[in-house]
């Protein structure tokens, strides 16, 4: 098991507390309708985790790539925006 948190720990973030920039539109769709739940393994920062059949999203470690929005092509259940200016990931090297 790879500890993704160890990787993300090296990164610099300015988290916009209480204002996540990505939301799951309707959590029921993830639980009831989505077969693949692709976000739970394709997100490079493992922001999406499975708890039973439910998908939980924590955006703190987000790398702002856009994978979750595009991979949810069948259900389009990801409401995706960039964080407010100056917030989110701050790459040191890029």
């Amino acid at each position: 098991m790879i500890n993704i948190q160890e990787k993300l720990f090296q990164n610099r973030y300015r988290v916009d507390d209480g204002r996540p920039h990505i939301r799951i539109r309707n959590p029921e769709i993830c639980t009831e309708d989505c077969q693949s739940q692709a976000c739970t393994y394709a997100c490079p920062a493992a922001c999406y985790t499975l708890e039973g059949k439910a998908v939980t999203l924590t955006t703190d470690g987000c790398l702002e790539c856009g994978t979750c929005r595009i991979i949810c092509s069948e259900h389009q259940n990801v409401d995706w925006a960039y964080p407010r200016g100056g917030h989110g990931i701050l790459f040191k090297f890029g």
Partner: peptide
């Protein structure tokens, strides 16, 4: 020494 992990489309 690993100092940053990044992802991009």
């Amino acid at each position: 020494e690993m100092k940053e992990y990044a992802a991009h489309l």
